[in-house]
Design a protein around this nucleic acid. Structure first.
Lengths: 137, 137
DNA sequence: TATAGGGCCTGTACTTACTACAGGTTCAAG
DNA sequence: CTTGAACCTGTAGTAAGTACAGGCCCTATA
């Protein structure tokens, strides 16, 4: 049940772990709706904002871009999204994560090999530096 | 041997695969030295520039930040670097790559699990969306 | 009720590593 | 000599925030 508690920006920040400036940023780019204000102009958030911000942060933690988050929110806001649409977006993202992992593993392997060539001695001749000067292709 | 050929920015770009604007950018931030100019003011690069740009690009491909590249170049330019210094920087970077891979694998697993929960049907109830609204701690 | 000091307000600037113009000049091939 | 590609400069844009400065508000305590 929504108890009518009103949260300041600082409280929302603490509850979600989201940086206080980032909350304002999300509002500016239209991810978080403008909340009502106090007489003095302070933002007063409700449970809905909290829920939405948790959603955004969770998406970000999972590596979704803000545009992808926006797409999710549009589906949810539209009210008539389907499971299929959501799954498509998610699988797409999963694919790109997998590609990034593959890229990083190649980097890892190359760096490990380069390091292994180098004895870390005190001479000013280094196989790592040599390798970096190599045109590869 | 350095044949005294002079390269335009466009040629350097083509030879290295580095975007033509990026070359100017590297010059601006002090990674690439200012080349001599033609009478009309066009940049004329020599073999040294080519070599250095290849080095920078190779570092970038391997995921080093521009500041790390700058550090490498400072060592090389200083002339009296040691293998040990280079190896330390490289192992540091390797470590951070490994951490990133671990992070990404966690994301991958979570996303795969979430997707598996979802049958992709046409109903407007989606376990992925539900999961994204969950506060996890 | 007065006040102190923390929290909030706004706008703007900075970050990384580029990329993309606009508007003008130079170069080189034919 | 012409013409069109390539180059020149400065500036602005990208993602996703983060970090101020300078000023106002809010509330707990005396």
């Amino acid at each position: 049940m929504s108890n009518g508690r009103r949260l300041t920006r600082g409280k929302l920040s603490k509850l979600t772990g989201c940086n206080i400036e980032t909350i304002r940023y999300y509002e500016r780019i239209g991810l978080l709706p403008e909340p009502p204000r106090s007489a003095g102009g302070h933002r007063l958030y409700a449970e809905d904002h909290l829920k939405r911000l948790v959603f955004i942060r969770r998406c970000r933690e999972l590596g979704f871009s803000l545009e992808e988050v926006r797409a999710f929110l549009a589906l949810v806001d539209g009210g008539k999204y389907t499971c299929g649409e959501v799954k498509t977006l998610t699988l797409h993202h999963l694919q790109s994560i997998r590609e990034k992992i593959a890229d990083m593993r190649r980097l890892e392997r190359t760096l490990a090999e380069m390091s292994a060539q180098c004895d870390g001695g005190t001479v000013p001749e280094c196989p790592i530096i040599d390798a970096l000067f190599e045109t590869r292709l």
